[in-house]
Design a protein around this nucleic acid. Structure first.
Lengths: 226, 226
DNA sequence: TCTTTGTTTTGAACATGTTCAAATTTTCAA
DNA sequence: TTGAAAATTTGAACATGTTCAAAACAAAGA
């Protein structure tokens, strides 16, 4: 049985957590690349093989962190969605929450976002991260629904995925932002968000009508039929 | 002495080429990850250590390919620039040339573009690839200059870098495009290019004037002062 | 030609992610 | 309680990128 499909014995669940915690510690201390599985195992008080019994690979540890992050953020995001009404409030809330949560783990996020290759398990575009991605996109879906966003039906369905992509881009910028307090990311977030909302606000204006067609086709090309 | 700063003895230059050629062969056959340095060395008829005498690392082989690619494409691009006048012709020419050149090396390009981390040597954004990147951007610079592109001075200086980024995005899509004949990439190229040119054409229209300010600031945030 | 000096080549050794067969411990039905 | 079956733990072994000291070779001045 692969480590992914563990039954949840309380005992083994605890051991698993212990290893994950140890791993995150070592990652934070040494960075992802310099951290060795041997050190992680030792730090968790077990042998090398035991660590591999619970996690299929070093990458799997990062995946576990990612999954845990999503789970721990979910209630906050639920709360944000229920307490706000405008798209702006919601996007600021959701994306802001993520920055806040990931703040102490910049190096780990680096390991996560260093890959674009959809075939690499850690890539945000991979099959391995699909379930996490889908749940994330669902939040953006809900942020869009019953905010009074008006878009033609050739474009609207793509909006949640586009917002997710936008957020990924911000994250990427954030990960490598070395400015004090990551103020460049803050600026970027602010400016792009308000520009985007402005575009959405004026999307009904007749002048923009001729853009619907090509824009819709473009999205269909990128995302395939859907 | 590190392999990078080799003197160019004809003999050693030949050996170096032999190793690079062998490496590209093995990469194409097995893919970058599955290719081993031992196999590459054997395929070049030398010992493992000898290969490392000429190339500091496996990644260095990809870098060498990248450099060689740029050198081999340069004359074609020069020709394209001199034979065409409009920005559209030039962009189609330059970017099309790259697709054509890289066509037999999709897997290698995957290895190259799999990394976004600016600290990873193979990343298109890394210091290690800076000289290649700069030379590439210079081509776009020349494609812009003396095409009659009108943009406010708060935006114009960023255009070559933006075009380079656009091209990188296309490449990325291309690398992972599994559609027959990579027709989705062709479509994407076509649609985005014409949209972009349309935007550039109408950039002088007064209605768009209020966008100059925020757009310029946005670019300054992303690229830093310049 | 012989010696010296610098270049090239070699293969062993190392580090680290990963696998695996065997040993140990736990579980639980009889 | 006992013993078989399942889960857990161990450490050795393996593959592969990389390093390195030593050997082999080449160049060139005497």
């Amino acid at each position: 049985m692969t480590a992914m499909e563990q039954q949840l014995t309380p005992k083994s669940e605890a051991t698993r957590s212990r290893i994950l915690a140890a791993a995150l510690g070592v990652f934070r201390e040494r960075g992802f690349d310099a951290a060795t599985m041997r050190e992680i195992a030792t730090s968790a008080g077990m042998s090398l093989g035991a660590a591999y019994y619970y996690f299929d690979s070093k990458d799997a540890l990062v995946m576990a962190f990612y999954r845990q992050a999503q789970q721990e953020m979910a209630p906050s995001i639920e709360h944000i969605l229920s307490e706000s009404t405008t798209l702006e409030q919601r996007l600021r809330g959701i994306i802001g929450k993520k920055f806040e949560y990931f703040s102490p783990n910049q190096t780990l996020m680096g390991a996560l976002s260093a890959h674009i290759d959809p075939k690499h398990p850690l890539s945000p575009f991979s099959a391995a991260t699909a379930s996490i991605r889908d749940r994330d996109i669902a939040f953006f879906q809900r942020a869009v629904t019953d905010s009074k966003v008006k878009l033609p039906p050739s474009i609207l369905p793509y909006l949640p995925r586009l917002l997710w992509l936008y957020q990924m881009g911000l994250m990427l910028f954030w990960v490598y932002d070395r400015s004090p307090n990551r103020e460049r990311t803050a600026l970027l977030f602010d400016k792009t968000l308000s520009m985007m909302l402005l575009v959405l606000k004026f999307s009904g204006v007749p002048l923009l009508r001729p853009l619907y067609r090509p824009a819709g086709e473009l999205l269909k090309t990128i995302y395939g039929e859907a």
